[in-house]
């Protein structure tokens, strides 16, 4: 399939998003849109390793945390957070390499539980390190301007989140058409058959894991600059990893647009729940997400986007059968 429709859709989202980011003064909605693109980016990052490659991770927040902490450390040291972009990405990539090398060959729940363990170890490590702010975390000093990645309005943040999402989306579009993309899908479908055509599971999964870890780190930098506060519960905790996985699953794992759809559902629900039931943290949002995940897992295991693709394919498949059968009937 040609990438053109995807590119057009992405361009439309970027244009509309930018118009909105710099046109709107509604802080609440801008905040939602920022969160939407930030989560969509994180969901897509997760989707590389858990969707395309099929290693379901419940520890993806640690890479997000790498970026957030890099930004917090840089700004507090009087350095530009732009420095945290390569630094955070590098640390995340290194962490992905070190943790992925032994664990990526684990299958199913063995991998998933290992990611929980690794996530908890990283979380614990940060909580015990003075230079990382222990359990209390950091505030970031208030600065201003593009050089400090801080702005008095929310508009530029939304634009940056949108830009990051667009980049990751382009990378994913390229992934789907690349050798890596074919190999990840083959490994997910059947690792033994994949090896029989010469695919080195560890090598290709490590490439995917390190790449997507850097995306999450970039999102972390942006998040820290936006909230100006970083601590373990908001960046590293299991609950953040679970949110990222939620977004990935709801939209549909291993699909290009799944993470954006998942993030939209997530953000809209958060807003509705806050509006109607009085704030999150009371669990109503969790009840609804949980119910959605349950319904999807039991009745639509390919997620929202995956189900749409399946339906389209079925329709096309049915057309195939008809066109094959007709000549036979004529003859």
């Amino acid at each position: 399939m040609s990438p053109r429709p995807h590119l057009i859709a992405l361009a439309a989202i970027v244009v509309l998003g930018l118009l909105y980011a710099f046109g709107s003064k509604d802080a609440v909605t801008l905040d939602l849109v920022f969160t939407l693109f930030l989560y969509a980016t994180l969901g897509q990052s997760w989707n590389w390793i858990s969707g395309y490659a099929g290693n379901i991770s419940f520890g993806h927040a640690i890479f997000f945390g790498c970026g957030a902490y890099a930004a917090a450390l840089c700004t507090n040291a009087g350095l530009s957070p732009w420095l945290a972009v390569p630094a955070g990405a590098l640390v995340a990539a290194a962490l992905a390499l070190v943790t992925g090398f032994p664990t990526l060959a684990l299958r199913g729940h063995y991998f998933s539980i290992a990611t929980i363990a690794v996530g908890a170890l990283v979380d614990t490590y940060v909580r015990t390190q003075g230079w990382l702010g222990m359990a209390n975390g950091f505030e970031l000093p208030i600065k201003n301007g593009l050089g400090w990645l801080q702005f008095s309005d929310k508009g530029p943040y939304v634009a940056l989140a949108l830009g990051l999402f667009a980049l990751v989306q382009l990378a994913t579009l390229a992934l789907e058409r690349s050798r890596l993309g074919y190999y990840l899908r083959a490994l997910r479908a059947n690792h033994a058959a994949a090896a029989s055509v010469g695919i080195d599971e560890r090598r290709w999964k490590l490439i995917a894991f390190t790449s997507c870890a850097t995306f999450a780190a970039l999102a972390g930098v942006l998040y820290a600059q936006y909230t100006l506060f970083v601590d373990p519960p908001s960046t590293l905790a299991l609950s953040i990893s679970i949110d990222i996985a939620l977004i990935g699953v709801v939209g549909g794992i291993g699909t290009l647009w799944g993470p954006l759809v998942g993030a939209s559902v997530y953000v809209l629900l958060a807003k509705e729940v806050a509006l109607r039931l009085g704030g999150s943290g009371k669990g109503y949002d969790l009840v609804i997400y949980g119910a959605i995940i349950c319904l999807i897992a039991a009745w639509r295991p390919h997620g929202i986007v995956g189900s749409i693709i399946d339906a389209l394919r079925r329709r096309r498949g049915a057309a195939d059968v008809v066109s094959v059968q007709n000549p036979a009937e004529a003859a």
């Binding site: 899908r185 083959a186 997910r188 479908a189 059947n190």
Partner: peptide, 26 residues
Amino acid sequence: QTFADMTVLESVTTGALLRHPRVADA
């Protein structure tokens, strides 16, 4: 042991990628 969620063309392309690293060639 087929790749259940890949099309016939995609499955065979996956095999061909071993000697032809560029997707278009494969």
